[in-house]
Design a protein around this nucleic acid. Structure first.
Lengths: 231, 231
DNA sequence: ATGATGCTTCGAAAACGATCGAAGTATCAA
DNA sequence: TTGATACTTCGATCGTTTTCGAAGCATCAT
């Protein structure tokens, strides 16, 4: 198959409303069952099944069989990046007119997960704070945690050494936000930081969306530990 | 229109073979006429016209009328980024089997333009050399040219101050390569460097493609001026 | 076993989009 | 003005894709 045909095939897969909904639903990095995805997209199970098969065959999704359930997730961070890049174009221009956005949309802008790390105002704020305090020093492809950052993460209970050990995944990388139009921290460290926030009850997922809210406890810890000030 | 519908609309536009060809053809940042794009995609002028209208209305392309010609170009770097991210998924896995690639493909891997800057082995090599020599120090969102880099560019005849002056475009940003799987230098500096190479005859575009080759003269200058060693 | 659940395959109906011939508009060159 | 070029609009055709009902498989609970 020609390279261009494959390009079109991939893009076309993302270009169906039903499939687009499913891909968006998987953007938080979780693995969902076919039924959940069907309901999320508002289509029947049969339809969803055929869509999921096609996307899996094309290498966009990966499946894991568990009993009578089939868990689907994005095949790789590269897929998530493609979805983000399309989202960025699809997002209403912030600069244009401050058009009316629903409450759910507002929650998404405030904070959400992006594949496996934090995005939105929350993600950008944390990233900014880390850089300003000199805890992160990011190069072009792979970033570095400074000595002070190393100590900080260790104090918080995040083992950066262990993350560095498992190669094959870039430690730090920037990921451009569709709402903030600025980059936030992704990569293995971004993922670790995100799950750390979840595990400690600093953030909580809003029912049925990928929006997250910061708990009062989380606000305090983020401020005290990482110097994050959420406007 | 719901946000998700717009997502699907954008992706679907890129998901037609004809339109995909045109978008790829515009990836070098040039503006092409409708006829050129029609020929490139192997479709008639009427068909191309309707495609171009749709993509323009969706905000993917921008047109400029000049006499009886209509020049079409990508509407923004964000569009180019989306195309790149799809390409990355569509590219044959380098890791898998070193499958037979045609000579044209080899030329593209060696060096090409990506929207308005250099990519491929060439682009990555230059970027690496600049970073290793301490001429570039890239932060998360906007990079910085170090003092030594400033001097270097000035010596070469590239006015970084002037580039910094025109705001609205990020000076440095990484752009991930589909062939090298590593980032190369994009942004205003990347664009300036690219046109500088063209203007001085260091690189030349291969007829009808966006592949570029380095001239013997260019090899020498790139090595002497920027410390680039092309394997 | 028996029935329920999760998911896939099959088949047919319906909707959609791509395509191009033909005709129309705008610009250029005499 | 006349003719040529660049491009768009219209209209009809044709192929693809989506969709879901119905039936089939696999797994689980009892």
């Amino acid at each position: 198959m020609s390279n261009n045909a494959r390009f079109a095939e991939i893009a076309a897969l993302a270009g169906d409303p039903g499939r687009a909904s499913m891909l968006n639903g998987l953007m938080d990095g979780r693995a969902l069952t076919a039924s959940e995805l069907a309901q999320l997209a508002g289509i029947t199970a049969q339809t969803a099944s055929s869509h999921l098969t096609r996307m899996t065959e094309a290498g966009l999704l990966a499946v894991e069989k568990q009993g009578r359930h089939r868990y689907h997730r994005l095949a790789s961070p590269a897929v998530a990046q493609m979805i983000e890049s399309i989202m960025r174009l699809a997002a209403p221009e912030v600069t244009a007119k401050p058009l009316r956005t629903g409450p759910r949309d507002a929650a998404l802008r405030a904070g959400r997960t992006c594949y496996d790390h934090l995005a939105g105002h929350l993600g950008v704020s944390i990233t900014d704070a880390l850089i300003n305090a000199g805890h992160l020093d990011l190069g072009l492809d792979a970033g570095e945690v400074t000595d002070s950052g190393l100590a900080l993460f260790a104090r918080a209970g995040i083992d950066v050494e262990a993350l560095t050990a498992k190669r094959g995944r870039i430690l730090c990388r920037p990921c451009l936000d569709w709402s903030e139009r600025r980059p936030h921290l992704a990569g293995a460290i971004g993922a670790a930081l995100c799950s750390h926030c979840f595990n400690n009850g600093w953030i909580r997922r809003l029912e049925g969306t990928r929006a997250v809210s910061v708990t009062p406890n989380g606000q305090r810890h983020l401020r005290e530990t990482f110097g994050v000030s959420l406007s």
